[in-house]
């Protein structure tokens, strides 16, 4: 089999699985990780098609974007940090 096809298939599978995990994962940090994974594998496919420039731009841009999306997700969720009896404790 052609190695390019193998690489493409592997990257595509990673990408599809990753993108599913982004939306299904309950834990925010994992979702962010899978999002980054998806974006990097898309970049890998760009690289496979011989467009290095877009691959690097993809990493450059989305490496900055993922944390921002992550922070937005963080601000919108109401997750408790360091399980404590009540966040309003300590009047």
């Amino acid at each position: 089999m052609d190695w390019e096809l193998v690489a493409f298939l592997v990257l595509s599978v990673l990408e599809v699985v990753g993108s599913i995990l982004v939306v299904t994962n309950k834990r925010l940090v994992r979702a962010a990780f899978w999002l980054a994974m998806t974006l990097v594998t898309i970049g890998g496919i760009y690289l496979l098609f011989g467009s290095e420039f877009i691959f690097l731009i993809q990493i450059l841009v989305y490496a900055g974007t993922v944390p921002i999306l992550f922070v937005f997700g963080l601000m919108l969720t109401r997750t408790k940090i360091m399980d404590e009896p009540s966040t309003e404790e300590g009047t």
Binding site: L74, M75, R78, T79, K80, I81, T87, E89, G90
Partner: peptide, 8 residues
């Protein structure tokens, strides 16, 4: 994210 208490 709700506000939270931090111990300093």
């Amino acid at each position: 994210m709700p506000g939270f208490w931090i111990n300093m």
